[in-house]
C-alpha cells in the first residue's frame, strides 16, 4: 500500500504560460475588488487624516480617542454589539438544534419565521417595535386592559428596548449559520463519543460544541459586525440618549459637515469589526 503511494506520479508544477493565463482570468475580479472596495477604503483612510484645509492631521483621532465623551460613544457601540451578540447566541444555539431536528411542515414554518422578516426593511421592523413598546403602544394597552398594571411602563427609548429590538432584528444572522452546521452534523459523532465513555454533558462540551464552532463563529462575526455598526435600530429605539459610532458618523457628515471626523469614526468602527473577524478566523482554524 505504502509503495503504491510512493510510486504515484508526482504532479508537475504548472508551466509559466499556464500561470499567466490563470492570472489573466483572475484579473477582472481583482480589478472590481480594487475599485469597489479598496479605493473607497483608501479614500476613507485618507480623509480621516486631513484637516479642513487639506493638510495632514491626527486631530480627529485624538478627539475621538482622547475625549471621555467619544470613548463613551465607542463603548456604547461595543456594548450594543456585545450584548446583542451574546443574547442572540443564547437564543439561537438551541433554536438551531430545534430547527435541525424539526421535520416536514414544522421545519418549513420555522424556517419561514426566520426568513420572512429578512424581506422587511430594518426601518419597518424598528418602527414596529416602537409601536409595540411606546407608552400608548400595544404591550402597555394590553397590560392595562388586563389590569396587570395601572400606569404604562416606560419601555421605548430605554436600553432594554434597544437590545430587544437589535436581538430580534439580527437573530436570523445567528440562527442560520449555526443551523447550517448543525443540520450537517452526523449523529454518529455523539454516539461514538457516548460509547467511548462520554456522559451527555461531556459529549456536548468535547464533541458537539467544537464541531458546531464554525457556525457559532460565523454567526457571532455576522451579528457583532451588524449590531456594532447599527444605525437605524439605536436611532429609532433609543435615540439621542445612546450615541453610537454609527450615529456619530451620521451626525459628523450630515449635521456638523466634518467629513474628517466622520471618516475617523468610520475607521475606528472598521477596526473593531476587522479585529472581530480576524479573531473569528483564528478561532475557527482547524487543528493540524
Amino acid at each position: 500500500m505504502t509503495e503504491a503511494v510512493l510510486s504515484a506520479p508526482v504532479v508537475k508544477p504548472a508551466p509559466d504560460r499556464e500561470r499567466l493565463a490563470a492570472l489573466g482570468f483572475v484579473a477582472p475580479s481583482v480589478l472590481i475588488i480594487a475599485v469597489v472596495f479598496v479605493l473607497p477604503l483608501a479614500l476613507l483612510l485618507g480623509v480621516s487624516v486631513l484637516d479642513s484645509k487639506g493638510g495632514p492631521t491626527t486631530a480627529h483621532y485624538v478627539r475621538l480617542l482622547g475625549t471621555p465623551y467619544y470613548l463613551g460613544v465607542i463603548w456604547n457601540s461595543l456594548r450594543l454589539g456585545l450584548l446583542t451578540t451574546l443574547i442572540a447566541f443564547v437564543i439561537s444555539y438551541p433554536a438551531a438544534f430545534a430547527l435541525a431536528r424539526a421535520r416536514g411542515p414544522l421545519r418549513s414554518a420555522l424556517l419561514a419565521t426566520l426568513f420572512l422578516p429578512l424581506a422587511a426593511s430594518v426601518i419597518v421592523k424598528a418602527f414596529a417595535w416602537t409601536i409595540l413598546l411606546r407608552s400608548d403602544g400595544l404591550i402597555n394597552t394590553v397590560l392595562i386592559a388586563l389590569g396587570i398594571i395601572e400606569d404604562p411602563i416606560r419601555m421605548i427609548f430605554t436600553q432594554t428596548a434597544l437590545i430587544i429590538g437589535a436581538v430580534n432584528i439580527f437573530l436570523p444572522f445567528m440562527v442560520l449559520p449555526i443551523y447550517a452546521v448543525v443540520a450537517q452534523l452526523d449523529g454518529r459523532y455523539a454516539e461514538a463519543a457516548a460509547t467511548l465513555g462520554a456522559s451527555p454533558a461531556v459529549v456536548f462540551l468535547r464533541v458537539i460544541l467544537p464541531l458546531t464552532l464554525p457556525g457559532i463563529i460565523a454567526g457571532v462575526a455576522l451579528v457583532f459586525s451588524l449590531s456594532v455598526s447599527a444605525y437605524v435600530v439605536p436611532t429609532l429605539l433609543i435615540g439621542e440618549k445612546y450615541p453610537t459610532l454609527a450615529t456619530t458618523i451620521a451626525k459628523a457628515y450630515l449635521l456638523a459637515r466634518d467629513p474628517g471626523f466622520g471618516a475617523a469614526a468610520g475607521v475606528v468602527l472598521l477596526a473593531i469589526a476587522v479585529v472581530v473577524v480576524a479573531l473569528s478566523t483564528l478561532l475557527s482554524r482547524e487543528p493540524k
Binding site: A192, T195, G197, E286, P287
Partner: peptide, 21 residues
C-alpha cells in the same frame, strides 16, 4: 446508558472526530 457500558464500537463510516488528530 452507553457511556457506562465499556463497549467499543467501530461505526460504518467510522465517525472519527474531525476536530481532533
Amino acid at each position: 446508558p452507553p457511556h457506562r457500558r465499556n463497549v467499543g464500537v467501530v461505526f460504518q463510516n467510522y465517525a472519527l472526530f474531525p476536530h481532533l488528530t
